[in-house]
Write a protein that binds this DNA or RNA. Structure first.
Lengths: 208, 208
DNA sequence: ACAAAAGTGTTCAAAGTACACCCATGA
DNA sequence: TCATGGGTGTACTTTGAACACTTTTGT
């Protein structure tokens, strides 16, 4: 990149649940002990969304991830020859599975991050928390089928507060966020009704 | 720009009220009869926000505009040598005043737009409508002091529906969105209390 | 039998919505 | 005096929040 131009990159923040705690996928940066989100330059023939999906797929080969643009970052650095604007993306992956050297870290205990990826992570969490409250975006974190307790734990974990079980059930059923599949899960004690999301596309709905 | 790189630009969508109807500022594009939002390349030494404010100030020299990043646009064009990613910004200007060749058009009757500025305009309106409902962002559209009728007309115009005068008053006073300045405006008939915004920085608050 | 989790309704408080009258002013 | 628009309060409805017991199952 010459000193008179600005490059474009994408960075993807892959988030997922592990043991009902939100984790982020990171890759080690060079020889340092720092980590960064997957991403890289956008070639001229590729769309931003395409580049984000490509980088996500490279590290976490899932076809069904929810991907959404977050924000364009990139203050001018000290060295003008390396000026890059990075378009950050949020990606939700239903199960936290590894591939190609990514490591999952709890979002409340992330390792030192390279570049401005601290701010990127902030933005991603903020966006996820907000969307959880007024959309059905939780479908990106949970595979069908699931119990209402699973869904509630998902919400509680990300919102950081406990929810009333009965009010939660009334809310998500009343809104039509989830629908019963007519089966039950048998586990350690009493069987629980199984559900799936009514829609697996982003839909706005006022949830608590 | 060479065929192997992607350039970065900003585009600013300046919105303001004229006769209680939302208008957008546009500049003519070259020799065509199309219009575009103000904007241009981002030099390596300038931040995105800085470039957005610079372009805004160039056309509409206000110091107090509300400016916020919207979205990064830029599908690969037909010609790879001209690939540019444009970071769009929303700008709110309290009074729709002209400068340097911009023209104001009603948002519901815009002229043909160049590039992907139709999508950019969509995004800006969507964002403004959303923020109007859960922040005090209206301060960007209205100068102090104003009457509650002024504020209500602002909301009604942008949300596209009528609001009840008494409920509106209860809401905005109860939330502390505005505070009375203790003066009244004398006009065609009975005098109206004047108000100012309690805060002129973005604050979240659940408004209807 | 007991521990652990799932299912289920009601009550109360708060917020939102609908609605009508009087008054001050300028013409 | 009249037309216009601004100011004010109440009743009703809807929504949200709090809360306890019974049932099922595996150990």
């Amino acid at each position: 990149m010459s000193a008179t131009s600005v490059g474009v990159a994408v960075d993807v923040v892959p988030l997922g649940l592990r043991d009902w705690s939100l984790h982020a996928a990171l890759v080690p940066v060079g020889t340092t002990s720092r980590f960064a989100f997957p991403g890289g330059r956008v070639p001229p023939e590729e769309s931003l969304d395409g580049a984000a999906r490509r980088w996500l797929a490279h590290h976490l080969p899932r076809k069904d991830a929810f991907v959404e643009q977050l924000y364009a970052f990139g203050e001018p650095g000290r060295d003008p020859s390396s000026r890059v604007v990075s378009v950050a993306y949020l990606a939700l992956v239903p199960r936290t599975e590894d591939a190609h050297g990514v490591q999952w870290f709890p979002c409340d205990a992330m390792p030192p991050l390279a570049y401005d990826h601290g701010a990127v992570a902030e933005k991603a969490l903020e966006r996820l928390r907000a969307k959880l409250s007024y959309t059905n975006v939780a479908f990106g974190l949970l595979e069908d089928p699931f119990t209402l307790a699973d869904l509630q734990r998902t919400y509680e974990s990300i919102l950081g507060r406990e929810l009333d079980r009965r009010n939660f059930r009334k809310k998500v059923l009343g809104l039509g966020l989830v629908v019963p599949i007519g089966k039950r899960r048998h586990g350690p004690h009493p069987p629980a009704d199984l559900f799936r999301f009514a829609e697996r596309r982003l839909v706005a709905m006022e949830i608590g």
